[in-house]
């Protein structure tokens, strides 16, 4: 079927036997952008700009180049990501909706930091989800990181406070605060996470130095709503996009990053400890087409 074809093909094939950009090709391009979750508005914007240059585009190579340029432009002029070792302890709070990969991403980041010889501490501030504490404890062990944990259903802000306290007294370089998944539309849960943030800055005025929002590449247009509301509540400093090892393209980050002016820092490409990479816009755009 058409669906299969478009997902497995690239622009070379759209151009098969054609010399100019015709209407069919424009429609195929539109499909390519929409099916990568780029969103209607962004797709229309890109299409409009491409259409304007249509007569000057000769052949697949040129169309590809122009398209990539257009999308790369969305990642231009974003603020520099927060450097990883600017403060000691460097406090990173990890947030996002349910099941996106927060805990796993912390595990990967912690392992990476430990490997560089930095002392890492994790605060197990998801006290709500069944066995969330056990899960992050296993990751801490894998990563060679210390963990601060309370009992199930304890106050997450208290765990965060103890985490930062322990990090200061033990001389840790980095603290990761694992938080429970919550939908951005739940007012009381968003208040709870704001309280965690306030508690961190009570103990250490600049903390958290990083508020990392985890987004799932499988998510469609709702990711924009997630990013907006977490950003309003907490001030997001960076994004991690997980599950890019599947067939979803995660195109919604294009508009999220540019609209909210937040850098995409990491991509998750699997469940293993090594499966986290720094985000590279060029590589991302290559993978789209």
């Amino acid at each position: 079927s058409k669906t299969r074809r478009i997902l497995t093909t690239d622009i070379d094939e759209l151009f098969l036997g054609k010399k100019i950009v015709d209407d069919d090709m424009i429609e195929d391009l539109e499909e390519l952008l929409i099916t990568s979750d780029m969103g209607v508005q962004t797709t229309m914007d890109i299409m409009e700009r491409i259409s304007g240059k249509r007569s000057r585009i000769a052949g697949a190579g040129e169309l590809k180049r122009v398209l990539k340029e257009e999308i790369l432009a969305y990642f231009d002029a974003l603020p520099e990501p927060v450097p990883e070792a600017a403060a000691k302890p460097h406090v990173v709070m990890v947030v996002g909706v349910n099941g996106v990969g927060k805990t796993t991403t912390i595990g990967k980041l912690a392992a990476h930091e430990s490997k560089k010889g930095r002392k890492v501490l994790i605060a197990a501030a998801d006290t709500f989800r069944a066995a969330a504490i056990e899960q992050i404890s296993i990751w801490a062990e894998r990563a060679g990181a210390e963990i601060v944990r309370h009992k199930d259903n304890a106050d997450p802000a208290a765990v965060a406070y103890d985490g930062i306290e322990a990090a200061i007294s033990r001389g840790a370089d980095t603290v990761y605060v694992d938080t429970a998944g919550r939908l951005h539309t739940k007012v009381n849960l968003m208040e709870e996470i704001k309280k965690i943030q306030r508690t961190l800055s009570k103990r250490l005025p600049d903390a958290p130095h990083e508020v990392l929002l985890v987004l799932d590449a499988t998510t469609g247009q709702n990711a924009l709503s997630q990013a907006k509301m977490f950003n309003e509540a907490l001030g997001i400093t960076g994004i991690a996009l997980t599950k890019l090892d599947g067939t979803a393209k995660g195109g919604i980050v294009v508009s999220i990053c540019s609209e909210l002016n937040i850098p995409l820092k990491y991509i998750g490409v699997g469940e293993g400890v090594e499966d986290l990479q720094p985000f590279d816009p060029k590589q991302f755009v290559e993978a789209l087409f």
């Binding site: 979750d37 909706v97 349910n98 099941g99 799932d216 998510t219 469609g220 979803a248």
Partner: peptide
Amino acid sequence: DAMTGQDAVNIAKSFDERLDIGGVVLSK
């Protein structure tokens, strides 16, 4: 997941082809 984007067709198709699913639960 109710928040799933365009990839939902690929996911559903693959699981159904492989397992002949009986139905779907839409979470979240």
